[in-house]
Design a protein around this nucleic acid. Structure first.
Lengths: 239, 239
DNA sequence: GGTCACTCTGGAACGCCGTTCCAGCAGCCG
DNA sequence: CGGCTGCTGGAACGGCGTTCCAGAGTGACC
């Protein structure tokens, strides 16, 4: 009875901060970072720009909130997959890393935002989320407590750095492009590197061929394996 | 070049692309990324906005050029310091890493730009520069050729990720602030982490105390040591 | 039930930005 | 000496983030 007379006369739900951030993420996914406009966002929410400012302080905060929302989702999927099935802490770390990796693939704007967010305020809400997820696994690895911070930081920084660069590979491929584009791009890069000045870039030229057929995800995991090997070696843990 | 002549009195300098990029870097250093405006840049160069467009395609290209210029300088200082004096490839890698680290400290806007640059077009001019500098040392380390790409990528990604986050520490400290601010900020971060939800953030809370007194540069090098240990361990090289 | 206050809305307006346009200047070539 | 070309710089345009404000909706209190 209480809610009976409340017809769906309202064109929409009350326009909460959650809705705004959700719409912002959709908009970012659809049209990219430059496409996220307060006017476009207002239109999508069937309102005016001014209304949004009642819930969000400005564009900076909006982007931060969108980033945080996506990261939170990416980092907390993990228990479903790895809590029971995955056994080793190494698998746990890989799960967290790939969660972020995939999130960036799905939301290409995330790479830039993550970097901006972390470099503008490195200790916001985003960093602790990632830090916590990785840190628990590092802890489970048997790393001594005084090295928790170092080991976890190293992993987090690698993940963020690698994911950031690898983003564009799929981002430039557009919404529904297969691996065809990717091969073309990689060929172009490889060719460009081979065309560099032999005096200035001997190493890069030598490696150019390896670029052509490499798999991003495999390469990403190889880097993590490298760091994990370093951690276990330095603290002489059992693999 | 290093002089502080802020007077745009010289009218007869032909306004080359070099001058524009140089002025852009100075402007970025002085007033930050948001302060780099075509109008402000034009005023500093004693010209109009239109003239700049004859030498530079747009703001994107201008930022890319500024980033490239600073990275190039940061990465090529290295031979002077390490070519003869430093002996081991490990030292060489540390030199390159610290060169970038310092460059980001000196140009706080570089962290965001580096990330943007690499994620927008990962194989522009910036990536090969860094890649080459690190790769030569990796090569000298004795890493087998088929792992050159993996090892170098891992190092580069860590360096970029770590440098990006650590940028804000000094960036927020302003132009000439000593370590006083830094201690305050670190205390605040540590306190904030300790105030997190014990159920959601047990690890982060446990590590909060380590944040308080840590040294960025030391931490940065510890991460590199971790990766180097991984590289030497996996390929069973002699330390 | 009427009034008030308070939350929330959304359209209009402001100032600044990146970018474009174009009239005009040098210097060179014929 | 007149046009052509490379280059300059001021004015103008469309669009952005943000602010302002009149007013709708809703609950509280007399």
């Amino acid at each position: 009875m209480a809610t009976r007379t409340r017809r769906p006369e309202r064109r929409q739900e009350p326009l909460s901060r959650e809705h705004i951030v959700g719409a912002a993420v959709e908009l970012l996914d659809a049209v990219g970072e430059d496409g996220l406009t307060f006017r476009a966002l207002a239109e999508r929410l069937a309102t005016g720009p001014g209304a949004i400012y009642w819930h969000v302080r400005g564009k900076t905060e909006l982007l931060a909130a969108a980033t945080d929302a996506v990261v939170a989702a990416a980092v907390t999927i993990e228990p479903a997959e790895s809590a029971e099935s995955a056994d080793s802490p190494q698998d746990g770390i890989r799960a967290v890393a790939l969660g972020l990796f995939d999130a960036i693939e799905e939301h290409p704007w995330l790479a830039t935002q993550l970097a901006t967010q972390l470099s503008r305020s490195p200790w916001g809400t985003v960093a602790p989320r990632i830090f916590e997820s990785i840190g628990r696994q590092v802890c489970a690895l048997g790393v001594p407590e005084e090295s928790w911070f170092t080991a976890t930081s190293a992993l987090m920084h690698y993940i963020l750095g690698a994911a950031g660069q690898n983003a564009a590979n799929t981002a430039s491929a557009g919404t529904a492009r297969p691996d065809v584009d990717r091969a073309v791009v990689l060929d172009a890069v490889s060719a460009a590197w081979e065309g560099l000045d032999p005096d200035d870039y001997p190493f890069t030229r030598a490696v150019a061929k390896q670029v052509r057929g490499h798999d991003d995800r495999e390469q990403f995991l190889a880097g993590i394996a490298l760091i994990l090997a370093g951690i276990t070696a330095i603290h002489s843990l059992t693999t």
